[in-house]
């Protein structure tokens, strides 16, 4: 009788192998079909030769020969062209630079905010956190668009500054990198604050008291107690902002104008304007290559931070 009792306790939704298999099968199959396999397809098509037609590439695996094995038309020329093209190399480096600086700015603005919320009275933390998350629920596109009206030459910011007499000629902000930084920091700030808050809120206040008792000034206590203990939150927040920011498309398109060239925009242009699917795929593979390390790091951190589960 002992064994079934244990099985029951762990069963939950599906006692026995069958129930479990059914529960697991649907999400697993879905994610394999529409998340993992698509990446393999992208990787394959990045090796295909472009052509004019439908689809606009020569299939890499060709079964038309009637053999058991397909004939393979793999072609590395797309990648070699990519590496030789200054436009794409520039876009690659520019994307990493813009994402990196934006992430740093997010951290610098988000950290004091997360700390402020974590140090607020307990009954205020919930509402304060809610205020951080709330903008996320309203349209991202429309919030980015709102910045266009604020930042453009005859926009609100310039009118205000001119009215105050701070400047006499409008500052050109829209369609520059500065506007992209503002847009990314603005859009991704909540994703930085949430993991930071999660680690800061868990810290034992007694640690700071102990530091103070030992004569540490507030800044010193912050640097040697609070900051190091919040490192997991810093790493998680940094990755969660950096990874999607590298491929950002809407923000550089709306706020950066035609001049700036980020990878996400280059990818869309190649895909939609030139209809060159192999090059678009190669760009996606190149972007993923830069993100593999951050992604692996993030998944390690997430598995360490996740609540106690049976799998542990």
């Amino acid at each position: 009788m002992k064994a079934p009792a244990i099985a029951r306790n762990r069963g939950g939704a599906g006692r026995g192998a069958w129930g479990r298999r059914v529960v697991l099968a649907l999400p697993f199959a879905w994610l394999l079909a529409f998340f993992l396999v698509p990446f393999l397809i992208v990787a394959t098509i990045s090796l295909a030769t472009p052509r004019v037609g439908i689809p606009p590439y020569v299939p890499v695996f060709d079964w038309s020969g009637g053999h058991l094995w397909p004939s393979i038309h793999a072609d590395l020329s797309t990648f070699s062209l990519l590496f030789q093209d200054e436009l794409y190399v520039g876009a690659y480096l520019e994307s990493l630079k813009i994402a990196g600086i934006s992430t740093l700015l997010c951290l610098l603005i988000g950290y004091p905010m997360a700390l402020g919320i974590a140090r607020a009275a307990p009954n205020r933390r919930g509402p304060l956190l809610m205020l951080v998350i709330l903008p996320f629920w309203t349209s991202f596109l429309i919030r980015v668009y709102a910045w266009m009206g604020i930042l453009k030459d005859e926009g609100l910011l310039n009118s205000l500054l001119q009215w105050l007499g701070v400047i006499h000629h409008p500052l050109v902000i829209l369609n520059t990198d500065i506007a992209i930084y503002i847009g990314i920091v603005y859009s991704y700030l909540p994703f930085m604050i949430l993991p930071l808050y999660a680690t800061l809120e868990r810290q034992d206040p007694a640690l700071l008291e102990a530091a103070a008792d030992l004569g540490a000034r507030p800044w010193r206590a912050f640097l040697s107690v609070t900051l190091p203990l919040s490192l997991p939150g810093i790493v998680a927040g940094t990755l969660v902002v950096f990874i999607p920011a590298v491929g950002e498309y809407v923000i550089p398109d709306l706020l950066g104008g035609g001049e700036t060239n980020m990878l996400g925009k280059a990818l869309w242009d190649v895909f939609a304007m030139s209809r060159d699917w192999p090059t678009a795929s190669a760009l996606a593979v190149a972007m993923l290559a830069a993100l593999v390390l951050p992604l692996a790091l993030l998944s390690r951190f997430q598995s360490r931070m996740e609540p106690a589960e049976d799998g542990k």
Binding site: P38, G247, L267, L295, S299
Partner: peptide
């Protein structure tokens, strides 16, 4: 697989 779509750049997901 469950966690990756959270951060995956949208252009990559869309193209894939």
């Amino acid at each position: 697989l469950v966690a990756a779509p959270l951060v995956m750049p949208e252009v990559i997901m869309g193209l894939a």
